[in-house]
Amino acid sequence: MKYNRDKKNKMGTALKLPIIDLSSPEKLSTSRLIRQACLDHGFFYLTNHGVSEELMEGVLIESRKLFSLPLDEKMVMARHGFRGYSPLYDEKLESSSTSIGDSKEMFTFGSSEGVLGQLYPNKWPLEELLPLWRPTMECYYKNVMDVGKKLFGLVALALNLEENYFEQVGAFNDQAAVVRLLRYSGESNSSGEETCGASAHSDFGMITLLATDGVAGLQVCRDKDKEPKVWEDVAGIKGTFVVNIGDLMERWTNGLFRSLLDLRSTLHRVVSVGKERFSVAVFVDPDPNCVVECLESCCSETSPPKFPPVRARDYFHERFSQTLASYSGSD
């Protein structure tokens, strides 16, 4: 049984990631640190980002409350489009070796403003059930968006671009970022198939900011072609975000930021460590109408663009149709 065969190898060696101080007044030196982190790992820690530990803990507390509701109450908020509740095994990533999907529950929400907020309205739990839930989540969204904008200014500088480059190309015309609350069951599959909380994958968008409850399980693989794969543990550091680049940023940078041979950003997964695990991922995605094409600072005659231009909307439709069991092209 593959699960048992791999079990002794599930917990990898600890990976020491760079720690980036977002409060540093030295923008150019900070941007150089970000550039090196994205070249070497595609992952880094972000500290002194301005989101209080109290608010981060409050989000995790409210998340636990939501996932502890009876399934029928959660299914009232079932995902339609890209927002709402997704039950266990709803997501089956391309690399999954199981037929039933990953052992995690998810709840996704975004901004209530703009075109996307109207097309994909959020599904909130009833106030009488969770009175602090919505205000806590909306406060968190606003705070993390402020972090994202500041971080992307530094990413632009790291790519030898103007600080407001991504705003200029329309990446933030509409608030496309979403927050995904995650509960990993921590249980193995009784059928004997190998299961993961999240199978090996790369994120689809620009950048992901992750907060965790401190339970282990997140791993990265920096060389996807090495067999057997070497998985390295990424520990949670209280009060920090774990940041990783996504596939669209890989396309923008022509594979410069954490290039892999299949031109996908750094492979990562979540393995079970025998206990529940909660995390909060913020996917900073571009406006659906934004065209992602190779940056001039990332190509040359000897290194031509590896990807054709793609509209963000089309890219996401293609990727979600491969991973979400309940996804349809009309979402």
Score class of each variant (00 low, 15 high):
M1I: 08
K2R: 14
K7R: 15
A14P: 03
P18G: 01
P18I: 05
I19T: 10
S23V: 04
S24G: 01
S31M: 01
R35S: 13
D40M: 05
E53T: 13
M56Y: 01
G81W: 09
G81S: 09
G84R: 13
Y85F: 15
D90W: 04
E91A: 13
I100G: 00
D102G: 11
K104G: 04
G114D: 05
L116K: 04
L119Q: 11
Y120A: 01
W124K: 05
L126V: 04
E128D: 14
L132M: 09
M137F: 00
M137Y: 00
E138M: 13
K142G: 11
V144L: 12
V144T: 11
V144K: 06
M145D: 03
V147S: 07
L154G: 04
A156P: 14
A171L: 12
F172S: 10
D174A: 05
Q175N: 12
G186Q: 04
G186A: 06
S188K: 09
S190T: 15
G192K: 03
A198L: 12
F204T: 01
C221G: 11
D223R: 10
F241K: 10
G246I: 04
M249Y: 00
W252I: 03
L256S: 07
F257K: 05
L260R: 13
L261M: 10
S265H: 01
E276T: 15
F278G: 06
F283K: 03
D287Q: 03
P288W: 02
N289I: 00
E293R: 08
C299A: 07
S300F: 02
P305D: 07
K306L: 14
A312Q: 06
R313M: 06
D314N: 14
D314V: 08
F316N: 06
H317P: 00
E318I: 09
S328A: 07
S330C: 10
